[in-house]
Amino acid sequence: MQEETKQNRLQELEALVAREQDRLFRFAYLRVGSRADAEDIVQEVFLKLYRSEERLRRVRQMEHYLLRAVNNACRDFHRKRQYHLIPLDEAGPLPESEEDKLMHETYLRIGKVMENLPEEQAEVVRLKCTDGLKFREIASILDIPVATAKSRYRYAIAHLQQTIKK
């Protein structure tokens, strides 16, 4: 019986990965700028979920759950990197295809626009403009009130309007 449950969970995981992996990969890539790191993060999020032994189809609002998990993992990723100099020969990914080059250029372009924003504002802007989420969804992922999400967004746009003009 236990084996059957585990088989079912593996099947649920398979279906979930097939459905969500590209979206989560995109989400992670636009925050960490490397295919290898983004896939590591996505892989770890799925495996942590699987290890939690929840029946996956019973997790409510799975999409938000996963985005929140990936967002937190990306934050941890940056926090760990903050204190370590990267060996020069490892600085920056090596894009291997045209698609990867395009992805990386997009990451750099968007990052440049937001480089002077405080991180809590940049986070909301990314979720709204780059990921196309609604404020209600953003609030759920960041675990903040909707009003706070809207207010941070407003300040961020005002800031960008000033800085980009210059």
Binding site: D22, F25, L102, T106, C129, L160
Partner: peptide, 17 residues
């Protein structure tokens, strides 16, 4: 500004993921 921050570039995870 919102347009500058959006993208149509496809992001696809590796086939092996």
């Amino acid at each position: 500004i919102e347009s500058m921050l959006s993208t149509d570039v496809p992001f696809k995870a590796s086939d092996s993921l």
